[in-house]
Simulated scan of single mutants.
Amino acid sequence: MSDGPAQQFPPPGAPPPVDPVPAAAGTVPMPPPGSPPPPAPAGWATYPTVPGPRPAPGLLLGAAHKPGALPLRPLTLGNIYDGAFRIIRFNPKATVGAAVLVTAVAMLIPVVVTLVLTFTVGIAVDASGEVDADASLSDALGALAAYGSLLLSIVLAQVGVVLVTGMVAHVTRAAAVGRRLGLGEAWAATHGKRWRLIGLTLVVNLAFLLLLVAYVLMWVVVVQVAGGPAPVVLWGLVTVPAFLALCCWLWIRFYYLPVPALMLEPVGVFGAIGRGWRLTSRQYWRTFGIALLTVVIAQFAGGMLSVPITLVGQIGMLAAPEYAALFLVLTQAAALVVQNAFVAPFLAAVTSVQYVDLRMRKEAFDVELMREAGIVPA
């Protein structure tokens, strides 16, 4: 038996029934499906729909502002190293190739000089690489000429590495916005700044040399006027750590960032030094920590790469003492080429990335890079 009359369903096409429960005061009924959205309440701002470029899909997500090797935001240590390796990997000719080229050309000089001297006048060098004291004058002069040409070539190679550092600064600037530079393009980008770059190198190295000479002269004075070893020991305990700390401080504030500043900004030698000084202001410890860690890594890796070549040279000098000078020069040249192939690009890339990072932190450089990459900042 049913408790009441059976419920009748409406026939097809009949209008929907009216809700017997009235809507609460202040509520807005839902619009029927397919109807246009209601206008925004008064006082609400609508999302602007101005014409112009739009970010590509995904650019507003986590990896949004990374059109190239670097995320366009303040960088972490991992970002800096990852960006440096990406720059080297995707621009090998303008980084590794340039470092190998300048080093190999410079080291070709002592190799040729030593070859000629070895098979003409002879070179008086023993198995340890030292000049034989019992040799004739011509043999001794040959050894001095070979070693002198090696020293000169090392200096020339370092000048070449300075030019490579300037090229890598332009490579880093281009990689930040997703562009690659070849060897010719990177070299052309340094046009008009090459002599300034060499002058900058001379200025900063001369300043450090004068500082070192002044400290050595102070040691000479202290030793002369001290009445015994106690004052000299006390002087050393106080001034040696202070001098090392001063050198580290000047390295970051005075020496570390002027090269990318000179390459990428319309400044001269002293203007570049001032730019490096201002960028590292209030950022000394972070910059110093990353720079010191980078130097340790680069020198360790470079040493590991050059150790096998040095061992081959030592074995050759023991096996054929008459060609000891030739083995020494050949292995030194090859070791320096291999070492610079990694050390020079890596140090230059990390330095340039740190320059970009400091400018993004202090000068909103990331906004300029986004604009150049075609990204509309959110």
Rank of each mutant, 00 (worst) to 15 (best):
P321D: 07
A333K: 03
V307M: 12
Q283F: 09
S281A: 14
V307H: 05
L347P: 00
S306Q: 15
A348S: 14
S281C: 07
L328W: 09
V295R: 09
L326F: 14
A334H: 00
I309P: 04
G276F: 00
A341P: 00
M317P: 10
L336C: 04
F288P: 00
V337T: 06
V343H: 00
Q339C: 02
S306G: 15
A324F: 05
A335M: 04
V307C: 03
A298Q: 01
L330M: 15
V296M: 15
P308W: 05
V337W: 05
V312D: 09
T287Q: 08
G289L: 01
Q332C: 12
A319M: 11
L293M: 11
G303H: 06
L279V: 05
A325C: 13
V343F: 01
V296K: 10
F327G: 11
L305N: 07
G289H: 00
E322M: 13
I290R: 06
Y284G: 07
A334V: 06
L293G: 15
A348H: 03
P308D: 02
F346L: 14
G313A: 09
T287M: 08
Q339R: 07
I273H: 03
G303A: 11
Y323W: 14
L292N: 09
L292T: 11
Q283M: 09
F288G: 02
T294M: 06
A333N: 06
T294A: 08
S281Q: 13
G274F: 08
V343C: 03
L330H: 08
T294K: 03
P308F: 02
T310I: 10
M317D: 10
Y323G: 07
Q332N: 15
I297G: 05
V329D: 04
L318F: 03
G313E: 11
V338L: 13
P321N: 08
L318T: 11
P345H: 00
Q314I: 13
R275G: 10
W277T: 02
T280W: 10
V343G: 01
V296G: 12
L318R: 13
W285A: 10
Q314L: 15
L279Q: 10
E322W: 12
A298W: 00
L326I: 04
T287A: 15
G302E: 04
Q283G: 08
M317L: 11
V307N: 08
R278G: 07
L328S: 11
S281V: 06
E322H: 13
R286G: 14
S281M: 09
A324V: 06
F342R: 00
V296Q: 11
T331H: 14
A334I: 04
V329G: 05
